[in-house]
Amino acid sequence: MKKKSIIHIIILSVLMTVMLSSSVYSADKKGDKILMMATTTSTDDTGLLDYLAPEFKKDTGIELRWTGVGTGKAIQMGVNCDVDVLLVHDPDAEKKLITDGNGLNRKELMYNDFVIIGPKTDPARIKKMTVVKAMKTIAAKKAYFASRGDKSGTHALELKLWKTAGLGTPDKETWYLQTGQGMLATIKVATEKEGYTITDRGTYIKYSATNRGNPPLVILVEKDNNLFNQYAAIEVNPAKCSNVKNNLAKEFIKWMASAKGQKLIKNFKLEGKQLFTPNAKK
């Protein structure tokens, strides 16, 4: 008797499992209007997508789901056909994606800007220099510099800046700290070492807010053309990935570039400050 009831429980639980997994599985099948996007941590962390997604759903009936990862991984997810659309900020990697035939129709949507921050005492004296000069000075004075080192869009920009400044990419230098972590973690490393780092303005605003407006690291270099960071959306090529929902991806990009989408981006504020500047070409 006891033995029978154990067998019943086992059968029942197997059945329940199968039913649940199939319900999870089919949930996506019936609601076909789900758009899967891979994006960078900055759009996720700042809350921009939490703010845009409901509006997008209201206008188009499409549910936007996204996973916030580093730009490198986001692009790899596009190559692997895991997502329908990408929203990233690494122009060189994006171009490679398109020339390899994995991405289509790159559309520039907005930019944010980066700043170089450092201790208030500014030991290397880079305040108000141009970016190129500031980078050269940091390297010459061997002041601590914290780098993301994680193939994110921010990391890509930083590497480009070393190049623009005519320097080789630092690697094993004692003053060059590669954290391999997110932006905030990297800022924390710079704070502890009283060094410099480069960050997007949005993350800096959040950092400043968590330090009650009096952060140990302050903006030293900003508003340089080299510090603008272009975000673009790219469709994953349906010719290479038969499963992707290319029509939904097209619709998303169109909506983001529309007058309404652009206005929403402009109005998105963090701690009362605008983070992204829309710049989609008509």
Binding site: V24, N80, C81, N243
Partner: peptide, 14 residues
Amino acid sequence: TKKGPLGDLNLLFQ
């Protein structure tokens, strides 16, 4: 992953 051997099972992000 969609390009992996079990990609058709649609398990990613689920």
